[in-house]
């Protein structure tokens, strides 16, 4: 069955450089620089990426950063907690808008 998402596409990411090579180069150079060890370790950056991948619900990123987290030495407990951080922020982002809802409702209500 044809799918919108194909796992094989992940390995073809660099094909995005076709027709716009300079932009792709700038992006991939930046991307590689971001994930190098700095104030944060490569392991910590991969955990953040894993959490963000879940927040943006990118199956390619989840595939890539699950593997990266394991190879950088994170364990399943840490990875699961990272996903909970993403879930908490996403959930919290919804819930905090409830304040706005309540403020508007209060203004409209008697």
């Amino acid at each position: 069955m044809e799918m919108y998402y194909d796992p094989a596409d992940l390995a073809k990411f660099n094909e995005i450089g076709k027709d716009a090579p300079e932009l792709a180069k700038k992006f991939f150079d930046y991307y590689a620089e971001v994930f190098k060890e700095g104030e944060l370790t490569e392991r910590e950056k991969a955990l953040i990426a894993l959490a963000v991948a879940h927040a943006v619900q990118c199956p390619y990123c989840i595939d890539a950063y699950t593997r990266a987290c394991l190879e950088k030495g994170s364990n399943l407990g840490e990875m699961t907690e990272a996903v909970h951080v993403a879930a908490a922020i996403r959930g919290g982002a919804s819930l905090v808008h409830g304040v706005q809802m309540r403020r508007i409702a209060e203004k409209l209500s008697m």
Binding site: T41, E42, R43, R67, L70, E71, K72, G73
Partner: peptide, 17 residues
């Protein structure tokens, strides 16, 4: 040894952790 089908982390960072 890795607990799956992936490569090991670098020795120095694994030792720290």
């Amino acid at each position: 040894n890795p607990v799956g089908a992936f490569l090991p982390v670098s020795q120095a960072s694994a030792e720290r952790k």
